[in-house]
């Protein structure tokens, strides 16, 4: 009889230790996933920011009279580079997208520029990077959602605040941030 009680106590102690440990480990690895997904976005954003100066330099010669629009792109890039946190970065990225799509409208008036091989390549790189950002953003938000769910559900919720697991911020600007400015070479 005594033996049975002892086993029961040991079992309870083991469970009491095992639950927090496995929950904690689970939250740690989930948080790692969130971080790596976020650094994926950051890498692509960095690449986008790196491409902008090239774009500006290659169009300067063609567009002397469009300083305003070119400056707006440069400014939006600056903001993106200096942004912190998911929300602010997402907004800055969205602003850059907006500036670039305004720019793409103007480009229509410059057929020479549109036919320039270098410019086409840059536009392809930019469009590709924008698409990669969209994909990375989607992946990140999915992972962030599963992590946030984990730290809100039982048993995670008991330990999240204890161990300092904060909810992940979603990478979200407005819905239209996916409207990648398309590069149209229909030639019409």
């Amino acid at each position: 009889m005594k033996k049975g009680v002892l086993i029961a106590i040991i079992a309870i102690v083991v469970i009491l230790i095992a639950i927090p440990v496995s929950t904690y480990n689970g939250m740690v690895s989930e948080q790692e996933n969130v971080n790596s997904a976020y650094s994926n976005i950051e890498a692509q954003l960095q690449r986008r920011a790196d491409l902008i100066p090239n774009l500006v330099n290659s169009v300067k010669g063609y567009m002397q009279h469009e300083e305003k629009i070119i400056n707006s792109i440069t400014e939006a890039r600056e903001k993106l580079v200096n942004a912190h946190g998911a929300k602010e970065t997402a907004d800055a990225n969205e602003a850059l997208t907006q500036a670039l799509s305004n720019f793409n409208v103007i480009v229509e008036n410059y057929p020479d520029l549109k036919a320039n091989e270098n410019f086409i390549q840059l536009q392809d790189e930019l469009a590709g990077t924008e698409n990669r950002i969209a994909v990375a953003r989607k992946d990140y938000n999915e992972i962030a959602k599963s992590y946030n769910g984990m730290i809100r559900r039982i048993p995670g919720v008991f330990f999240a605040s204890m161990f300092g697991f904060d909810p992940a911020e979603y990478f979200e600007a407005s819905e239209s941030s996916h409207a990648v400015p398309g590069v149209d070479f229909s030639g019409n």
Binding site: N40, A127, G128, N131, A134, V135, A136, G182, D184, S186
Partner: peptide
């Protein structure tokens, strides 16, 4: 990861 390019 979404690399590549599109054409219309």
């Amino acid at each position: 990861g979404g690399g590549g390019s599109s054409r219309r």
